[in-house]
């Protein structure tokens, strides 16, 4: 599957200072797939995301996106290729309006189709439309998450990485969020879902990887992993 993969990571090692967080990661995402990376807090999920988006440098291994090696590129160049990372904690621009936040999502990519994409995102998220002139910092947590995803979608991603999107949302909003992810994927976009929310992630994912202490301890079809209670207990604390 490696030749057809949209994202192909091999032997990735990365960390901070003396600490090596990722100790040899192999991961693929094919076009149109939803792939979940699951694991509890502190096992290296955020470091993996940051390495893929160029914020943290890979110390070893390769990251291929859409056929090209990207492990030495800077974040803006990786965004230009269509690999978009919606970060944990939203990282929206609190001092700017909702519309301005969305506009900056197309700073590097799809700039020419900005207005059309913004309209499309407003129709997906009517709440954002209602609040389009409001400062993003004044939105509720759920609205901020929608805005972060909307900003990511403005770049017309080939692959969107969603880092803990359900964190801090009410159960009802989480339900809505996962329905939305499935819908985005239905439009043909590949999704890499990095989550602690195991049950719902496995429901919508095609495949899943279980991350523990900087290594994948298991990977396979999401349905198989969901059906293995011992596995869930051992690595996901359920």
């Amino acid at each position: 599957m490696s030749t057809s993969a949209l994202l192909d990571i091999r032997g990735l090692r990365a960390g901070y200072g003396e600490t090596e967080v990722l100790q040899g990661i192999d991961l693929t995402v094919s076009p149109g797939e939803i792939v979940a990376v699951l694991g509890s807090n502190g096992v290296g999920k955020s470091t993996l995301n940051r390495a893929m988006s160029g914020i943290v440098r890979a110390r070893a291994g390769t990251i291929q996106f859409d056929g090209d090696a990207v492990e030495n590129e800077k974040p803006s160049a990786i965004v230009a290729r269509g690999l978009i990372h919606v970060p944990e904690g939203r990282r929206i621009f609190p001092n700017m309006t909702v519309s301005e936040n969305l506009d900056l999502g197309s700073y590097r990519r799809a700039t020419a189709r900005r207005a059309a994409n913004r309209d499309r995102i407003f129709s997906t998220f009517p709440r954002l439309f209602e609040r389009r002139s409001q400062r993003a910092g004044t939105l509720s947590g759920g609205e901020q998450q929608m805005l972060a995803i909307g900003r990511g979608l403005m770049a017309e991603p080939k692959l969107i990485i969603l880092d803990e999107p359900s964190l801090g949302l009410s159960p009802l909003l989480v339900e809505e969020l996962f329905a939305l992810i499935a819908r985005i994927n239905g439009e043909g976009m590949a999704v890499l879902l990095v989550e602690q929310n195991v049950v719902q992630s496995l429901e919508i994912a095609n495949r899943a990887y279980i991350l523990a202490d900087g290594k994948f301890v298991m990977s396979g079809a999401a349905a198989d992993i969901a059906a293995d209670p011992a596995l869930k207990r051992a690595y996901l604390g359920m």
Partner: peptide, 23 residues
């Protein structure tokens, strides 16, 4: 301008700006 908006974005949220493709 996009550059002006990017300046304001970097001022308040540098990581978010980098992930939005702002150099």
């Amino acid at each position: 301008t996009d550059t002006g908006k990017a300046i304001r974005a970097v001022a308040k949220e540098r990581l978010g700006a980098e992930l939005a493709g702002i150099d």
